[in-house]
Amino acid sequence: MLRIAPTFEVLRPETLDEVVNLLDQHGEAARLIAGGTDFVPNLKHGLYAPEVVIDLKGVSALRGIEHRPESLVFGALVGLHEMETDTRVHAVLPSLSRAASLVAGPQQRRMGTLGGNLCLDTRCVYINQTEFWRGALGGCLKKDGDVCHVTVTGKKCVAAASNDTAPVLISLGATVELLSPRGVRHLPVDELYINDGIRNLALGHDEVLTRVFVPRPGPQRRMGFEKLRTRGAIDFPLLNCALAFDLDEAENLSEPVLIFSAVAARPRSISQLPVGRLDAALIAEFGQRAFASVRPLTNINADVDWRREMVPHLVSRAFEAALGRASATPFSLSNAR
């Protein structure tokens, strides 16, 4: 019943030069589409009204995974399914492979791309609704209104970053390559996101994300990813977390990174993480650090107290995944069946 209002023109460039020219020409009137699994439902809900839609799928320069000595380089059009099933990616970057495997359901992973997942729009129970539904509340900060139904008094949109690959890429120190009529620039993935739910990307309207560079981890690097969701498929994260750290032969943990997402407009890096001998107490301390700083809001449709209580459990499961003790399975009502 939800239909796309035919108000725009679809352009199909084949080279990056053409993409850049089109962005230059159309500016804010244009929107980019890759797999469309986020874009199309949002379009149907009337969240976007582009005049021009630039379809990137014909741009072959955006495809492919390069295995360089110092890094893995992913084209923005690399499919989530490809990342999930590529054994070489899995061997080097197991947490990234796992995060890709837990995005939405099989159909979306076959359509969806890495670039698309990184540029996923923020989500909120008050925005991802039909126009009719939103209209009944008079809109909200993100669109057509001036009030936030989550924080009520707040003046900042708190729609949640819900990409599963973003926290992992931040935990791995990845960078993105952005191309615009002004040239190329590189940005750490951490800096790709800003704390504004209305638009959480530090990406100009004339910029396109072209490649993702992930440094090859050292031999002592361990990594894990966990996702809390309602079912074994389809659902966006209720919480997700990416963990990475070095572990030496003496079981000493150092250089930890712990990122939580699906909480606020950008992924949250947990600070003041402990280092030292890896034991249950240390893992518990990670959990407590995370619990102290992750405060779920009612922007996602699930009990907020229960979600917060799940934070330390998610951390300890990310540790198990990182240490290879757990199977490569997700964490949910259903878990990957």
């Binding site: 198990e320 199977s327 399975t329 069946r337």
Partner: peptide
């Protein structure tokens, strides 16, 4: 086999 339906391995959990 496995924990949960079809969960492979996973003794740690």
């Amino acid at each position: 086999p496995g924990n949960g339906s079809g969960r492979p391995g996973g003794g740690g959990q």
